[in-house]
Simulated scan of single mutants.
Amino acid sequence: MNALYHCISKYHSIPSGAWDALCKTLTKVEIPRNSFLVKEGMVCNNLYFLEKGCLRGYYNLDGKEVTYWFGFEDNFVTSFYSFISRKPSVENIQALEDSALWSISFEALNQLFDAHKDLERLVRIINEQYYIRLEERFMAMQFKTARERYEQLIENSPHILHRISLGQTASYLGISQETLSRIRSQG
């Protein structure tokens, strides 16, 4: 839980009473490689903090898996659409490595918001950061070439190339595996 406290402190400091209340509501979740945290069609009831491991978010399109995010240590993850709207998820969240997470339910989180405004502010800041990353990704997919997206990946997240399969990386970049291989061989 130290990793969670350290991560939270980067966003917003919270009083010890709020931290204690949060800790009482958290549940440790461990999932093995290749298992699912969320499956398409189910309502996602939890927000997670990824303490150890690697997850990917993907959806199915015409029989193909389209990866659109990866989560690593010290990331908050969930099916945001489903978690917030309380509607069935359109995505799958799969463990790519054995993973350890801390979980809080939608209901518990909202009860904490009512009691501790600092936690509400913290989650708002985390959501804002998520939105910024989402918009950056959208702009990259719309306005950058495949090579530029690959170079941006190397610059901002080089660990992805060591932990994620070539096919999933290519899907994330919105290109074929062959195109990714060609870009990598060109230096």
Results as ranks from 00 to 15, higher is better:
residue 140 A to L: 11
residue 133 R to L: 13
residue 112 L to H: 02
residue 149 R to C: 00
residue 116 H to T: 00
residue 156 N to I: 00
residue 40 E to T: 09
residue 123 V to S: 04
residue 20 D to I: 13
residue 144 K to R: 06
residue 153 L to G: 01
residue 59 Y to H: 11
residue 178 E to Y: 08
residue 77 V to G: 02
residue 11 Y to L: 03
residue 96 L to Q: 03
residue 179 T to H: 07
residue 124 R to T: 12
residue 4 L to T: 03
residue 38 V to P: 00
residue 6 H to K: 13
residue 23 C to N: 15
residue 151 E to I: 07
residue 163 R to V: 00
residue 76 F to R: 10
residue 174 G to A: 00
residue 115 A to F: 08
residue 186 Q to E: 06
residue 152 Q to M: 07
residue 17 G to F: 13
residue 112 L to K: 01
residue 114 D to W: 04
residue 47 L to A: 02
residue 26 L to E: 02
residue 27 T to M: 11
residue 124 R to E: 13
residue 5 Y to E: 12
residue 109 L to Q: 02
residue 69 W to E: 11
residue 148 E to C: 01
residue 18 A to M: 13
residue 95 A to I: 08
residue 43 V to P: 12
residue 112 L to E: 00
residue 56 R to N: 14
residue 160 I to K: 03
residue 142 Q to R: 05
residue 134 L to Q: 14
residue 118 D to E: 14
residue 93 I to G: 07
residue 21 A to M: 11
residue 136 E to R: 10
residue 175 I to D: 05
residue 119 L to H: 07
residue 138 F to G: 03
residue 100 A to Y: 08
residue 33 R to T: 15
residue 151 E to C: 02
residue 172 Y to S: 02
residue 135 E to K: 10
residue 25 T to R: 15
residue 81 Y to E: 12
residue 103 S to Q: 08
residue 99 S to K: 08
residue 109 L to S: 00
residue 99 S to D: 03
residue 176 S to M: 10
residue 33 R to E: 15
residue 61 L to T: 08
residue 105 S to H: 11
residue 109 L to W: 00
residue 146 A to K: 04
residue 166 L to A: 01
residue 162 H to N: 15
residue 25 T to Q: 15
residue 137 R to W: 09
residue 168 Q to R: 10
residue 82 S to D: 09
residue 37 L to G: 05
residue 54 C to G: 07
residue 157 S to K: 10
residue 158 P to A: 07
residue 85 S to K: 07
residue 139 M to D: 15
residue 29 V to W: 09
residue 156 N to Y: 08
residue 51 E to G: 08
residue 182 R to H: 00
residue 39 K to C: 06
residue 112 L to R: 00
residue 117 K to I: 13
residue 42 M to P: 02
residue 128 E to C: 11
residue 139 M to W: 08
residue 145 T to G: 07
residue 147 R to S: 13
residue 176 S to Y: 04
residue 14 I to Q: 03
residue 60 N to D: 13
residue 136 E to H: 04
residue 97 E to N: 05
residue 113 F to N: 06
residue 93 I to R: 09
residue 58 Y to C: 05
residue 96 L to P: 04
residue 35 S to Q: 14
residue 53 G to K: 04
residue 11 Y to G: 08
residue 27 T to W: 02
residue 145 T to N: 05
residue 105 S to L: 09
residue 44 C to W: 01
residue 76 F to M: 04
residue 85 S to I: 01
residue 77 V to M: 13
residue 46 N to D: 11
residue 164 I to S: 05
residue 64 K to C: 12
residue 157 S to M: 12
residue 184 R to E: 05
residue 121 R to Y: 10
residue 168 Q to P: 01
residue 126 I to Q: 01
residue 177 Q to N: 03
residue 15 P to H: 12
residue 154 I to R: 07
residue 98 D to C: 09
residue 7 C to V: 07
